[in-house]
């Protein structure tokens, strides 16, 4: 399966600090490890949940489990970096969305979200604008829906394909 993976600078896994081999070698999760310990990646619809410094196109293999915000596989390897990834442009799109929500629902709370989203980095802008969506709509599910829209934006802006 082709999927996408967010990593820290230098292809470093963000939570463990482990470096992913840039030469495309397969990385296999340890056998018998607990559920959730495999190789994690995103389908296009899940991109916005895991925004990081680098975005890579990856190949997954072995047993693959698809979950709400990620996929997990036994094996994975990096294929190519998505060099078109532009965090500032994405953050700006999140700012625009937040401003739009605030003009629909002009409350002090929404003003706080606008103030914040304009000064933070891309991953935080994604989070704040999704919270703003939930506040504007008054539903928790608007948070996840906004993330889905952000994912679509990313897929389009970066011209990503899953096939």
């Amino acid at each position: 399966m082709i999927a996408f993976k967010w990593l820290g600078r230098g292809a470093i896994a963000p939570f463990t600090g482990v470096r992913w081999p840039a030469d495309g070698r397969w990385v296999t999760a340890p056998a018998g490890a607990p559920e959730g310990s495999g190789v994690h990646a995103c389908r296009l619809a899940q991109l916005a949940w895991w925004v990081g410094e680098e975005l890579w196109r990856v190949e997954l293999d072995g047993r693959i489990v698809e979950r709400e915000t990620e996929v997990e596989a036994e094996r994975g390897r990096l294929l190519e970096p998505i060099t078109a990834w532009n965090p500032a442009a994405f953050a700006q799109a999140c700012v625009a969305r937040t401003i739009a929500f605030a003009s629909e629902v002009p409350t002090p709370e929404m003003a706080d979200y606008v103030a914040m989203v304009t000064v933070v980095d891309a991953p935080t802008a994604s989070f704040v604008s999704a919270v703003a969506a939930a506040a504007a709509r008054g539903t928790q599910k608007a948070f996840a829906e906004e993330r889905a829209l952000q994912s679509q934006w990313l897929a389009r802006a970066l011209d990503l394909r899953e096939a």
């Binding site: 963000p14 490890a33 607990p34 559920e35 959730g36 949940w49 925004v51 991953p123 935080t124 989070f127």
Partner: peptide, 18 residues
Amino acid sequence: ARLPLEARTRLEQHLVFC
């Protein structure tokens, strides 16, 4: 590695931006 999967995912989602 003793967090239930859902809680683990949510925690990691928090770490993404925090």
